[in-house]
Design a protein around this nucleic acid. Structure first.
Lengths: 187, 187
DNA sequence: AAAGACATGTAACCGGTTACATGATTCG
DNA sequence: CGAATCATGTAACCGGTTACATGTCTTT
């Protein structure tokens, strides 16, 4: 249930914002960390209002409603941020496929892993570019954004190295299997 | 929609199995990669049967049904495995919190990051133990399991190093901020 | 006879996605 | 005037979780 806390956090950062404003932040700053759809966000703001964790502090043209966190909301947010242990993402599509790689010829498996290495390298490069474009920006928000960016850089690098290593492992495994087969034939 | 493909893959590996058998595998081998509940698995086997990707090949006592993949199922599975690009998990609870770390005192932020480092180190150690217990096992399945395990080892190591680094960054940022404040006071 | 493993199924709910629906204001 | 942007809301659907419900076979 983190969209709720993401919304609370953004309102805490901004002081006050409309659903539309928050949606912009989700699509820009939080796109790679916690995406949200318009539908979901408006629904959640309704629920947050009902739970009195946020309140409408102003209404403007075009039906605009500006929200702000209440004291209860800020408390709930800080509890989530520091007290609740982050939930680890247990499902991993990549590793699930790796688990089944024995069902296809070794060559196809290696190909798959090498493709993953390339994809990870691409991602790394895209993040490097983002880093360069962010280098000039200042402000306290930028500091924490950079921590997240560095995580992405390290993650993509790890993934690339692992995939390359894993492809080599498959090659070794196959040649070891062949040697055993050859010895068996010789005897 | 990967539970579907996980089930197909397990049936392809096993040749034939019941829902109950598959559930055991999900709870043991796939627990950290793609967990599944009993409810979900039985429902999915029903859908797979309707779609003619699997079929009931035997019925035994206690209402047991043994399933096997059909040709169409095997084709669908291999297409998923090698052709469909793995979907990247976009939501990251940890990074979402990092994004908001500016809302609490630097000390609390550092504390949070150091806790993450410890949690990652713990996970690393648990995987090391798993590795030792697996060292004696043989078989083609073990090879790919080891690739996944190595991913986990590298991931937890990366996370630990990153969290430690990030906590240091916050410390530096704060002392830099203080120096600026001190200079401002002196002038 | 009781306990535990084997075995399957359904219903309610929840978070999230896609698509549908509507309207106001601003800018060129 | 028309297009783009601002702005909010609802309904249907989907994958996944929790809980409920039922019954059989084996082992002690």
């Amino acid at each position: 249930m983190s969209l709720r806390h993401a919304a609370l956090g953004l309102l805490a950062l901004r002081g006050e914002a409309s659903g539309y404003d928050l949606l912009g932040i989700f699509n820009e700053s939080l796109e790679h960390v916690w995406p949200a759809t318009q539908s979901q966000l408006y629904t959640e703001l309704g629920k947050l209002t009902d739970a009195e964790l946020v309140e409408v502090v102003a209404e403007g043209g075009r039906g605009r409603k500006a929200y702000a966190v209440t004291d209860a909301g800020r408390k709930e947010f800080e509890h989530w941020l520091l007290e609740e242990p982050p939930t680890v993402n247990r499902r991993n599509d990549l590793l699930l496929r790796v688990f089944f790689l024995g069902l296809v010829p070794t060559e196809r498996g290696q190909e798959f892993l090498r493709e993953r290495a390339v994809a990870a390298a691409d991602m790394h490069e895209r993040l490097r570019e983002l880093e360069r474009s962010l280098a000039t920006e200042e402000g306290p928000l930028a500091v924490h954004g950079r921590l997240a960016l560095e995580w992405g850089l390290r993650y993509s690098r790890m993934q690339e190295e692992w995939a390359t290593w894993a492809a080599e492992q498959l090659a070794e495994e196959e040649s070891a299997g062949q040697r055993i087969a050859e010895v068996a034939v010789e005897q």
